[in-house]
Computed example of a mutant assay.
Amino acid sequence: MDEPEFDTFFRTTMPMLLGYLIKSSWNLEQAKDAATEAMIDAYKQWDTIEHPKAWVYKVAARHLHRIRGRERDHDHADVVQTDPADPDGVAALDLGEEHRRVMAALRSLPPNQRKVFALHYDGWKHTEIADHLGMTEGTVRSHLRHARENLKRRLDADTATRDEE
């Protein structure tokens, strides 16, 4: 195991992974849990992973689906309650107002547009996104185009509303 290589991977990838999971509409606590579990799995299997970034993103998504399944099956009486005004825990990240507006607009996108845009924003190439999400490159480009149009429309409407106030 090359621990310095894994350490560098962890330090550069973990913030991007958390950002992607949050942009993909998971709340902060779920994102932290899934990202941590994925990184632990990556550490254990480091020498066998060929494409670590894609691998850890995929494993984190699987952990999130398991978390969501457990929450559905769980008695919600003892589940930690979130702030109704900030159900995704974004305020805890101490982001600027503009960033919060963009995050809210991202959460309003359809799931595939949101995932494609989040990965593109994190610097993934169309081929990497297509492979990761099981889509064609044409579908990725289409989702990205629609996401941009939807985000522009939503942010323009939000700006117009704020200007009227």
Rank of each mutant, 00 (worst) to 15 (best):
A118E: 05
M1R: 15
Y121M: 09
L119Q: 09
R70P: 03
L155A: 03
M14S: 12
A42N: 03
T12E: 14
T13G: 05
A105D: 08
A38H: 08
D131F: 09
L18V: 11
T159E: 15
V80H: 15
K44G: 01
D156F: 04
E71P: 00
T82W: 06
G19F: 02
T48N: 14
K115A: 13
Q113H: 14
F9S: 01
V140P: 08
H76R: 14
D7C: 01
D2K: 15
P4R: 13
P15I: 07
E128D: 14
K58M: 06
E5N: 11
R148C: 00
M16G: 12
R114W: 06
L64E: 01
Y57A: 07
A160Y: 01
H143C: 11
P4W: 11
D163A: 14
R70Q: 09
T159N: 09
A105C: 05
R148A: 05
L119H: 07
T36F: 10
I40S: 09
A157H: 04
L109G: 03
D156W: 04
D73F: 04
H65V: 11
H120C: 02
R62W: 08
N112Q: 14
T13L: 04
R162D: 10
T8I: 06
K44P: 01
G96W: 02
E137F: 04
S142E: 13
D2F: 03
T136L: 08
A61C: 04
E149F: 00
E37Y: 06
W124G: 02
G19I: 00
T8Q: 14
K32V: 03
E165V: 10
A105G: 03
E164M: 08
N112G: 02
G19N: 13
F6V: 06
H99K: 11
Q30P: 02
L93S: 03
K125H: 13
H99L: 07
R114N: 04
D73W: 07
H143P: 00
D41R: 14
A92S: 13
E37T: 04
F117K: 11
A31P: 09
D41Q: 12
S108I: 03
A31V: 06
A104R: 15
T127L: 10
F9N: 02
H63G: 00
D163G: 01
A60M: 06
T12I: 01
G134P: 05
Q81H: 12
L18A: 03
H99V: 08
D75T: 07
K44V: 09
K125G: 00
D41V: 03
K115F: 00
D83V: 11
A35L: 02
R145P: 01
A35V: 04
R148E: 12
E164G: 00
P15T: 10
R72C: 00
M14D: 02
R107Y: 01
H132G: 05
Y121Q: 15
R100Q: 13
F9D: 01
A118P: 04
D41A: 10
D88T: 10
L133Y: 08
K23M: 14
T82E: 15
E5I: 03
E164N: 06
A35C: 08
M14W: 10
I67L: 15
A31K: 12
A31I: 02
A118Y: 09
T136E: 12
F6H: 11
R68H: 12
V90F: 09
R107K: 13
P4L: 10
E29P: 00
H51P: 00
A157S: 07
T48I: 02
I40G: 04
H120M: 05
T139C: 01
I40M: 15
E29F: 09
A34V: 04
A61T: 11
